Simulated assay, not measured.
Amino acid sequence: MTSIHVKPVFSGATDREKDQARQKLASDMARFAAAGGKVQILGTSGIDKSTISRRQVVEGGHGRRAAKKGAQP
């Protein structure tokens, strides 16, 4: 393969840029916490699939789907 077939990728971030972004995020989070800010950590529990279909999960949940059915004549 010659250099004519190899295209450089300029859109990817370099390791230095990624490290700078990590440091900036860490300093922003430290300032946020120092100002009294709190981060809400969401749970990672799964959905009980025995009581809800995949379609219901995608559409927003068991209750929402049931409400739509009940509203139609």
Rank of each mutant, 00 (worst) to 15 (best):
M1K: 14
M1I: 13
M1V: 14
M1P: 00
T2E: 05
T2Y: 09
T2F: 03
T2L: 02
T2P: 03
T2S: 13
S3N: 10
S3E: 11
S3Y: 12
S3G: 15
S3P: 08
H5S: 14
V6E: 12
K7Y: 14
V9K: 03
V9S: 10
F10V: 07
F10M: 04
S11M: 11
S11E: 12
G12L: 00
G12A: 07
G12R: 04
G12W: 01
A13V: 04
A13R: 02
A13T: 03
A13L: 10
T14A: 02
R16K: 07
R16C: 03
E17K: 04
K18V: 08
D19F: 04
D19V: 04
Q20E: 10
Q20K: 06
Q20C: 02
A21C: 05
A21W: 03
R22S: 12
Q23L: 11
Q23Y: 02
Q23I: 05
K24F: 03
L25H: 06
L25F: 06
A26I: 01
A26E: 05
A26G: 00
S27R: 13
S27T: 10
D28E: 13
D28P: 01
M29H: 13
M29W: 07
M29S: 14
A30L: 05
R31L: 14
F32A: 02
A33F: 15
A34R: 15
A35I: 08
A35G: 13
G36T: 11
G37K: 05
G37F: 00
G37P: 00
K38L: 01
K38D: 03
K38Q: 03
V39G: 05
Q40L: 02
I41K: 04
G43T: 13
G43R: 07
T44W: 00
T44N: 11
T44L: 04
S45E: 14
S45Y: 00
S45C: 10
G46K: 12
G46H: 11
G46D: 12
I47T: 12
I47L: 08
D48H: 11
D48A: 12
D48C: 10
K49D: 15
K49Y: 10
T51I: 15
T51N: 08
I52G: 05
S53H: 02
S53L: 04
R54Q: 13
R55D: 10
Q56N: 06
V57F: 07
V57R: 02
V57P: 00
V58P: 00
E59G: 04
E59D: 07
E59T: 02
G60F: 01
G61Q: 02
G61I: 10
G61A: 06
H62E: 07
H62W: 09
G63A: 11
G63F: 02
R64F: 14
R64N: 12
A66C: 08
A66V: 09
A66G: 07
K68V: 11
K68N: 12
K68Q: 15
K69V: 09
K69C: 08
G70K: 10
A71N: 08
Q72H: 10
P73Y: 14
